[in-house]
């Protein structure tokens, strides 16, 4: 209902202000479009946000044709290259994340760290807010606990409205915190994406219990295309798993085949699909309230 109301507002603003539509719509969204996200909801259900400003890429240099990259924003037809436009050019401030990225470190209660310049080693943070997209991300730990960076999961989603006609793989992985395969009653401990999301929401994290699997486009918003191994702002997302082959699941199933889903290879920033039986890591997400 809220969504319909918002759509009406958007259309109204389009009619009234014409080309000024986006600034107006953005204000409306800030005022009215804070979608309620239900705890325990299955991944990918109707809580995908309607307004997702794109991050810039992080690419601040130009290239030549047919080969060669430069250190600065120079090169062939440079005005049309990536480095010439977007936040990397207009908001290049490294104090809140490399180039055009803007992040805020959050503590275990979900509050911003008072000193944002601390290192993870001295003052570990639990979550990161992306100030451009409005998404809040789970940060992995290296403590062998629920959020450990090395835990991997198969892709599993029992919601027929969002699973691409196949539930995926419930219990073929054993590499996660608390896994117990002894009785049928322990499916909540299984190493799959849905079970993990439910465990985190049951325990709470950063003061919230409305964590969900990101869509593939949300997950891709974390890719720093200006870097590889890993292709992420590692000053804010520490504890990379395995920089040579680090794949992270999204909640988005593949449209082209069943029992496959989208992942991002954070080694180099590629996005692609793979079988639900594959073991990959997870960065849960929620929307800023």
């Amino acid at each position: 209902m809220k969504k319909k109301c918002f759509t009406a507002l958007t259309l109204a603003s389009l009619l009234v202000v014409g080309s000024g539509f986006f600034r107006s719509a953005y204000s409306y969204k800030l005022l009215f479009m804070m979608p309620p996200i239900l705890a325990g909801e299955q991944q990918g259900t109707g809580n995908v946000i309607d307004w997702l400003p794109l991050n810039d890429t992080g690419i601040t240099w130009g290239g030549e044709y047919p080969t060669g990259n430069n250190s600065g924003c120079t090169g062939v037809a440079i005005d049309a290259q990536d480095c010439s436009s977007g936040r990397d050019a207009t908001h290049n401030n490294d104090s809140d994340g490399d180039a055009g990225f803007s992040y805020t470190k959050l503590d275990s209660k979900g509050d911003p760290l008072s000193d944002q310049s601390v290192t993870y080693a001295s003052t570990p943070w639990a979550c990161v807010q992306d100030n451009v997209t409005g998404l809040i991300w789970e940060v992995k730990t290296d403590d062998g606990g629920l959020h450990d960076k090395d835990d991997t999961f198969t892709w599993y989603n029992t919601n027929p409205a969002t699973n691409g006609d196949a539930n995926g793989t419930e219990n073929e992985g054993t590499n996660c915190f608390g896994y117990d395969n002894n009785t049928a009653a322990t499916s909540a401990t299984y190493c799959n994406t849905q079970a993990y999301m439910n465990r985190v929401n049951k325990a709470g994290w950063c003061g919230a219990s409305d964590w969900r699997m990101p869509t593939i486009k949300e997950l891709e918003s974390l890719v720093h295309y200006g870097r590889t191994f890993p292709a992420i702002e590692s000053n804010y997302f520490p504890n990379p798993v395995n920089t040579v082959n680090w794949s992270v699941w999204s909640g988005s199933p593949s449209a082209g085949s069943e029992s496959t889903a989208w992942y991002v290879l954070f080694s180099n920033g590629f996005s692609d699909t793979q079988s639900s039986t594959e073991n990959a890591t997870i960065h849960l997400v929620r929307y800023r309230q």
């Binding site: 690419i59 049309a80 990536d82 486009k217 890719v223 295309y225």
Partner: peptide, 21 residues
């Protein structure tokens, strides 16, 4: 008008469809 960057181009993909997406 300009050539989209990779994130912009990916934003056009319709996730529920393939051939084309």
């Amino acid at each position: 008008w300009r050539l989209p960057n990779i994130r912009e181009l990916r934003s056009l993909v319709e996730e529920q469809c393939s051939n084309p997406a």
